[in-house]
Design a protein around this nucleic acid. Structure first.
Length: 276
DNA sequence: CAAGTTACCTGACGGC
DNA sequence: TGCCGTCAGGTAACTT
């Protein structure tokens, strides 16, 4: 489900409800996610400690508590976090619930269970960049993410550009939808081998990625089937999709029929005329 | 090493 | 109505 914009929208939605509150109880469904939920650790590190920050890094949410411990959540394909009133009915696939000191609840729901819940103690925080985030590349809005950086990394490589920008080691937060939409805006075919892109093309791509992500965040993310923000509201960036899911439809720019193929196992949509 | 494939899991949808 | 195959917003562990 969530790429960078959706995770950012969730982050902004839950932050005001969490800051300066404390967690008074934690309940789990008993089902495993990618890995077992470390329930004892969560209780030991989080309970009764005021929450000091709520942030996003790549597609991870980070919730810090006083004393330095940090909860790190990845939503996988179908994970979501929401805020709920006291005593409201739990839904199917709610796998983790944090009760706050005002009795409201933060809930983690994930039907496919590809997400992960990681609890870091205060003395594990210093090593985060070489542990949890070891395979996580620069943020797309950081100075480190530039045309020069991409061109250097791409040198001599045969990978299709869409697969390259979806590689979390190359850049954080870009998944299948926003990779495809960014390539359309940059006028670059998803199949292009990265060693063939010019500096000018890399710059167009960096700019397109930043614009698309910003616009998607401003729209509250994209709701394809079930993404909802922390207050169970839909995003609406999906109405701005130029190519994603539009096989057989006319290109919004030139009316050429949108095509579709599989790259790295993922559906990839493009306009064969606007993208070269 | 790089590049391609598979596995993890549930649910929605289309064809028959 | 139901059964079956295919696909889905991610990532890492495999294989080649």
């Amino acid at each position: 489900m969530p790429e960078l914009p959706e995770v950012e929208v969730i982050c902004r939605g839950i932050r005001p409800h969490l800051l300066d509150r404390t967690v008074t109880a934690i309940h789990a469904s008993g089902k495993e996610l990618r890995r077992p939920i470390p329930l004892d650790r969560l209780r030991r590190e989080m309970l009764l400690r005021p929450i000091t920050f709520v942030d996003r890094r790549a597609k991870y949410l980070q919730i810090g508590v006083e004393g330095g411990a940090r909860l790190i959540i990845h939503l996988g394909m179908t994970g979501n976090l929401g805020f709920f009133a006291p005593n409201s009915q739990a839904a199917k696939h709610d796998h983790l619930r944090w009760t706050l000191d005002n009795n409201s609840e933060l809930r983690y729901n994930d039907s496919r269970r590809f997400g992960s819940i990681i609890m870091c103690s205060s003395h594990e925080i210093a090593d985060l960049e070489t542990s949890v985030f070891q395979t996580t590349g620069p943020e797309p809005f950081s100075d480190q993410f530039s045309a020069e950086y991409l061109q250097r990394l791409a040198k001599g490589k045969e990978v299709p550009v869409k697969v390259f920008i979806m590689n979390t080691r190359v850049v954080a937060g870009i998944g299948n939808i926003y990779a495809g939409e960014s390539l359309f805006r940059a006028g670059i075919l998803p199949t292009r081998k990265v060693r063939t892109l010019s500096g000018k093309e890399w710059l167009k791509l960096v700019t397109a990625i930043r614009e698309i992500l910003e616009e998607a965040i401003a729209c509250g993310g994209s709701t394809i089937s079930n993404f909802l923000n922390a207050h169970q509201e839909k995003g609406y960036f999906q109405v701005h999709f130029m190519v994603y899911g539009r096989r057989g439809e006319p290109c919004p720019t030139c009316r050429t029929t949108i095509e579709n193929l599989r790259l790295g196992g993922r559906a990839s949509y493009f306009c064969p005329r606007c993208q070269r």
